[in-house]
Simulated assay, not measured.
Amino acid sequence: MGSEKHVIVIGAGIIGASIAWHLAKAGARVTVVSDSGAGGVATPNSFAWINASWGNPEIYFRLRIRAMAEWKRLAKDVTGLPLAWCGGICFDLPPAKLEAYAAEHSSWGYGIERVDAKRAGEIEPNLVAPPDFAVHVAEEGVAEPVPTSKALLADAERLGAQVVVGNVERLALAGGKVAGAIVSGETIGADEIVVAAGAGASAIAATAGIKLPLDTPPGLIVHSRPYRKLLNGLVHAERLHMRQTAEGRIIAGSDFAGGDPGEDPEAAARDLFVTMKSALRDADGLELDFHTVGYRPTPADGFPIVGRADGVGGLYIAVMHSGITLAPAVGLFATREILQGERDVLLAPYGLERFAR
């Protein structure tokens, strides 16, 4: 692939960083614009789980499986990405529902192992109460979100991309298509614009007359101080999802996206941390460091919005909640569509036009 198109990517979180890297790799002239710098806003507050799990239809499962494979491809192209294929153990559903989930996803080719308490204790020996029945998926992993975004943007800059820190006031239009973006009072011209600004995408798209049906529910995640290794992988217990980061922090939410922080997030964070600490052996010295409340960009039907915006030429939208999992596939597919006009079949259900129907 190759192109001399100038593409502005608005957003420096994991989705914007991946799209920018793929575009630069393909030969486009790329300008990344963000008012928050590398890492974006939602990405730093992510649980950062790479997976194809949960109650999704098979067509979405196929996109997520492809994205997991694309992470491995991307890790070969960009050295030093902080990925870990640590596996995940899940027991946050009633046994009958967990078995139904395992049977369905196994039939789709997902590598699910059904485990008892003995095997669960071998996988995660520091669990105080290993479950009698759980499922384990060894191929799931994590991408440390901010370092991964920064690594992609740094390599995009090496490939010629420019990263600009500034506030996108509005999109500039001419003749029914985008002509650029007004950034902190200055106009940056472009042939194409990608809006990958997470929770901020709606306001930016609205300046071009495009309505994004987007919700931004809050999610509370607690972060411990760095500690010795207690967890081998991801643990999804009832009302407690947790993992240990590369620097030794244990992070947790009441689910993987973070739970509702309520009216007193600090109190909710303290309670959640107590629950997390009590679930782990040898955690007496574990201390709460801080909590985050992230606002997850979630399209109204729960599925990604990836594709061109009808009625405005040169405008591409990429906004979704499953940003960590989907980032490498969305970056690759968006680049092909923007530069070559080729839309991957896996993206077919996820255009903005579905909401007009």
Rank of each mutant, 00 (worst) to 15 (best):
I15L: 12
I15H: 00
G16A: 10
S18P: 04
S18R: 03
I19Q: 04
A24R: 08
T31H: 07
V32I: 15
A38L: 10
A38S: 12
A42W: 12
S46D: 06
W49V: 03
N56H: 15
A67R: 03
K76E: 15
D77H: 12
P82K: 06
P82Y: 06
G88P: 07
G88L: 11
D92L: 06
A103E: 15
A103W: 03
H105P: 05
P131E: 09
P131Q: 11
F133C: 07
A143K: 04
A154L: 06
R158S: 13
V163H: 09
V163D: 07
N167L: 12
N167A: 13
R170M: 04
A174P: 00
K177S: 12
I182A: 13
V183D: 02
T187N: 07
E192F: 11
I193P: 01
G198V: 00
A201R: 03
A206Q: 14
A206D: 12
T207G: 01
L214W: 00
D215T: 09
V222D: 06
S224E: 11
Y227Q: 13
K229V: 07
K229I: 07
L240P: 02
H241W: 13
Q244K: 06
S254W: 09
P261F: 02
P265N: 04
F273Q: 00
V274D: 11
V274W: 14
K277V: 05
A279R: 08
A283W: 10
H291K: 05
T292N: 09
F303S: 10
P304K: 04
V312A: 01
G314W: 00
Y316S: 00
Y316H: 15
I317V: 14
A318Y: 00
H321C: 10
G323C: 05
T335Q: 05
R336A: 10
I338Y: 04
Q340W: 13
G341F: 11
D344Q: 03
P349E: 08
Y350K: 02
L352R: 01
R357T: 11
